[in-house]
Design a protein around this nucleic acid. Structure first.
Lengths: 195, 195
DNA sequence: AAAGTTAGTGAATGTTTACTAACTATTCAA
DNA sequence: TTGAATAGTTAGTAAACATTCACTAACTTT
């Protein structure tokens, strides 16, 4: 799944449109306008609109995956937990359009292929979070009162809602600040009480 | 905002379409087919598609509001918490299309009015949850380690994600069972440890 | 009996959508 | 220098969309 420079430009343009006008604004016409060429020129680089969206989601999945891989280095689960989320949050701050893409699920109805790509993308996050939580539980830092899966569900739900709120506020508030706050609340909740 | 019997039939039909084919399937054409009359007949009962969606959301908000008002009767916050969610969950089990409407946010792009109605609807839930959590915190049953707002954020996020998972699984798994399980996990997490 | 209302019809509106066919300009290797 | 691949153009397409049109049959009110 390599991508030409021009294809990359197009998925970047798609991102900008997504930020500005949401899923319903992401049309071939708007994409062509953003690229400053004609609509049919798009089809020199992608066979269909579906392909553009899938390419964008795959690129996003790869970015997130490699970023998270490089960033989790500590042996302290709590430290890794913080780093994982601040990395995620600053990524979305830099690329707010991806929030629209990933968390909107307005895309999900468009096609089966997009649907699957989107689910694959969501699993990337879980892949990195899971071992981290398990380690914390084994070390007795995180609570064992509920299962790892249940913990992850609660954490992911909380994060997703945070992103949702940021999005419907039109990315106006400081996501770094409120994100850190959110991470802190969750940690307080899931950490075992130390005496 | 009273509604004629015929208008009610139409928003019910809209609900069925939403369940079967999502937001993108909710067109006047499909609505007319479901009602077994012509497209133009829809406009005898509603001025626009937007009005139909808003009417549907308002009906939903009223239903949920009155249901929740009647169901929270105990003096035990934990009991009320359980009842609040099992009521919510069994309502959505009976009306799965509303899950699509409320939690999809695919609707949100359509118009400003729909957007506002949708946000109003989400506040209904918070309205009932808030006093309950505060009472639990005051009584020392729920943790005071984080604020009421932070607790509610985590709870709502967890619930929203549960509904999202149910939806993308095409309502196939038993939401009552997994919903109860989710409520139990959250309670375990937010309850102060008793000795 | 006349006048008005309600709830329907089929045909047509204008706009937007993703996509395509046919043509042209540019680049670059043989 | 040719000539083919590449990347763009203009000008279309059919289908889908919400909405509006003139009109009608069946009731109800005056």
């Amino acid at each position: 799944m390599e991508i030409t420079p021009r294809q990359f430009e197009i998925i970047e343009a798609a991102g900008r449109i997504l930020t500005a006008s949401g899923v319903s604004g992401l049309t071939i016409k708007n994409l062509a306008k953003e690229m400053q060429f004609s609509e049919s020129a798009i089809y020199r680089h992608f066979a269909s609109k579906e392909e553009i969206i899938v390419a964008m989601l795959n690129f996003l999945a790869d970015s997130i995956d490699s970023r998270l891989t490089n960033v989790i280095t500590s042996t302290d689960p709590e430290e890794n937990f913080k780093v994982l989320f601040s990395e995620q949050i600053s990524f979305f701050k830099k690329n707010p359009h991806f929030v629209v893409a990933v968390f909107s699920d307005g895309l999900m109805e468009e096609s089966q292929l997009i649907n699957e790509t989107l689910l694959k993308l969501m699993n990337v996050k879980t892949k990195h979070l899971m071992p981290l939580i398990m380690e914390g539980q084994q070390k007795g830092i995180f609570t064992n009162a509920i299962t790892t899966e249940e913990l992850i569900h609660i954490i992911m739900g909380t994060f997703k809602l945070q992103m949702f709120k940021w999005r419907i506020a039109n990315f106006q508030f400081d996501i770094i600040r409120s994100g850190d706050n959110m991470v802190q609340s969750i940690l307080t909740l899931i950490k075992t009480k130390q005496i």
